[in-house]
Design a protein around this nucleic acid. Structure first.
Lengths: 336, 336
DNA sequence: AATTGTAAGCGCTTACAATT
DNA sequence: AATTGTAAGCGCTTACAATT
């Protein structure tokens, strides 16, 4: 059959003719064992292939060395990079990572967080959480430590650090660039309704237009799924309803790719007739024709930094909460 | 402070004035409790926000409801889709997923599998594992159940199902198409040296050429990192060393995108001078110019099927091992 | 037979005690 | 003071016993 029984501290203790505590101290490199005893125990542990059970250890210590990572969708390259950065850093620090896709769905997000809670994770990284502020606060209180990515709590919570992209400023940069190259009828394809980043970009979009005395009419803003198909459908619709559109600022690069497709299908040249700007600078952005002008942030860095903030807080819960703000950079390419 | 103490079975038992076992039976929907008692207990459990600790449950039952997923790199869209499919299915079945990137690195792969073992996962999905056959067998024996994706064991192991893409046949389809459109000097940009899929595609590549009495010379095969940059560098080198190349079959779409870039830089028209075929059909493949001809498999399906095989085997370890083979489909677009 | 409870244990560690 | 050990417990469940 499979799965021969694994060795336990008791087994090692018996073989080494010491108590379980001495084995425990030896394998944890705790003080209080003589060097000879420790060496002898480690040798025996090695021989029988002993590995401590994290689950038993977790029950005894109330620490599981696991971290939960919530993202809307790992198949979105932006979050895939965050996940990679987080896992790289977690692995280095000896933590295992639970991955969860919220699938842009409140109920699933909540159910998944419940599951993480039951797994008794040491901390959670929540990316673009769509939960209501109240629900979010409840969950945050359940976890020993939390890092929020692209979400704010408005008031500091003692166990929570945040990493936010300055979406307002990013949107301002993008829209100002569109204005500079002479565009005036600039619409915003805004992604999901309940996205915090989307809302913040909307503010930047509005403020840039206002500076130029342009009022963004309500029908200049169109929500859609944060995917290529979502962007394509939204753009097709807008271009038909308002043929005079000359600039499109997009929720992310995925939607921007859909927008480029729509422009091709609708026979609009990019950037001459319609200039397009995305956000995230995923790899595809520089490979597509026309190459996509976009806002760059470094998601791998965000993922890895989120882990280091979280691990710090797990070990020192009383550190003062940090709120990191990351400035996006406008990368000028061909589409605008 | 944070983290108010969570309620335990003991708390609920005290409040309901029953024994812990009765609470356990009630919350697990086991038989042996009267309906009234169960209802009363569930109500109290709800009120105090009781959630069973998976870690305590895991220690008692030797089941953790966790699954490990190993991929070379989640940031690779192909594996990101597998991860998404796997997490979707795992969530539905009540399992939590540990994500691990091997980063194409033996030692990290091994260390990560050790970590999973210590977490006492109920099963593992190993994608494109790079471990030696011996090491792989050792790890497989440690886990209660395993699904291997894109890797073979050559002899059946009782706790292991496999899902393999028919890479040989895929490569044959691709190379035959290149031959049909008149290409003769067809090179293979083969990805990582230690990749099993790469080796299998090599066989298909050779056999298709042999059918046409063409001998692939050793320098027609070039290994590289499975990334856009890897593909670009390899293609640049090959095109310079052998200007007569008229067809390139690529390890995956990421490398194919790099190859397209290289062709542009080297001033070769695609597909007229050089035809290019990739593998995976990632989203980018249909968005790039020229649109990429490639081999399609459905990674989301693979991920989700891997979970269902695994969960089945966790519950019925004696099922006869399955070896699923997935046929890739050649998607003709512009690049070949 | 249906319902409920008791005792022990899963594999570790914390807190304290005992020995040299 | 340095080294080692004992007892109890983390929060559940399995196996069995007791009650109606």
């Amino acid at each position: 059959m499979n799965a021969k029984k694994r060795a336990t501290v008791a087994d090692v203790a018996r073989l080494a003719d010491v108590s379980m505590m001495t084995v425990s101290r030896a394998i944890n490199h705790s003080p209080g064992v003589s060097e000879e005893t420790r060496a002898r125990i480690l040798k025996i542990a090695e021989e029988v292939g002993y590995r401590p059970s994290q689950i038993a250890r977790g029950l005894a210590t109330r620490r599981t060395t696991t971290i939960g990572l919530l993202v809307p969708d790992v198949a979105n390259p932006f979050f895939a990079q965050i996940a990679r950065g987080a896992e790289d850093a977690a692995f280095e620090q000896g933590y295992s990572l639970f991955l969860i896709n919220s699938a842009e769905d409140h109920r699933r997000e909540q159910a998944a967080l419940d599951a993480l809670w039951q797994q008794e994770i040491d901390g959670a990284i929540l990316c673009s959480a769509r939960l209501s502020l109240d629900a979010l606060r409840t969950y945050i209180n359940r976890f020993p430590a939390v890092v929020l990515v692209n979400r704010d709590l408005y008031l500091q919570v003692s166990n929570t650090d945040t990493i936010n992209v300055d979406d307002r400023q990013g949107a301002r940069l993008a829209v100002e660039h569109l204005l500079e190259i002479g565009k005036r009828k600039i619409v915003y394809i805004a992604g999901p309704e309940n996205s915090v980043s989307s809302e913040r970009r909307l503010q930047g979009y509005r403020s840039a237009l206002q500076m130029h005395k342009i009022l963004a009419e309500p029908n200049w803003i169109s929500h859609c799924a944060p995917t290529t198909d979502g962007g394509r459908a939204a753009a097709l619709d807008l271009l038909q309803r308002m043929p005079a559109i000359d600039g499109i600022f997009c929720f992310n690069d995925l939607t921007a790719l859909g927008v480029l497709q729509a422009c091709r299908e609708a026979g609009r040249s990019v950037p001459d007739q319609v200039a397009v700007i995305g956000a995230d600078d995923i790899q595809m952005a520089s490979l597509i024709t026309p190459r996509l002008t976009t806002l760059r942030t470094d998601p791998h860095w965000i993922g890895s930094r989120a882990i280091s903030l979280l691990v710090q807080r797990i070990h020192e819960p009383d550190l003062v909460p940090q709120a990191l703000v990351v400035q996006p950079k406008l990368i000028l390419r061909e589409s605008a």
